Computed example of a mutant assay.
Amino acid sequence: MLPKQQKQVSKLRRPFVIAGAVVGALLSGWYIYDNITRRGLAADPIWTRFVNVALIMFVSIYLANLVRRVVEPLKKR
Score class of each variant (00 low, 15 high):
L55W: 07
I32Y: 11
V70L: 11
V22F: 07
K4S: 02
P45R: 08
V71H: 06
W30R: 13
V9A: 05
A19V: 08
D44H: 10
Y31K: 03
R39W: 12
Y33L: 07
V71I: 07
K7I: 07
Q8G: 12
S10Y: 04
A19I: 09
E72Y: 04
D44C: 08
R49C: 10
I36Q: 08
L27F: 14
A54T: 14
L26S: 13
K75Q: 04
R68K: 15
A54N: 04
I32Q: 11
L27S: 14
A42K: 11
N35K: 11
R77E: 15
W30D: 11
Y62T: 14
P73D: 06
S28G: 06
V51N: 03
V53Q: 03
G24C: 06
K4P: 03
Q6Y: 09
P3A: 10
A21L: 08
R69A: 15
R69C: 15
Q8T: 10
W30C: 13
T48P: 01
I36K: 09
V17S: 00
F58L: 15
V22L: 04
I32E: 08
N35A: 12
P45N: 11
G20L: 05
K7A: 10
N65H: 07
I36T: 08
S28M: 01
A54S: 14
G40R: 02
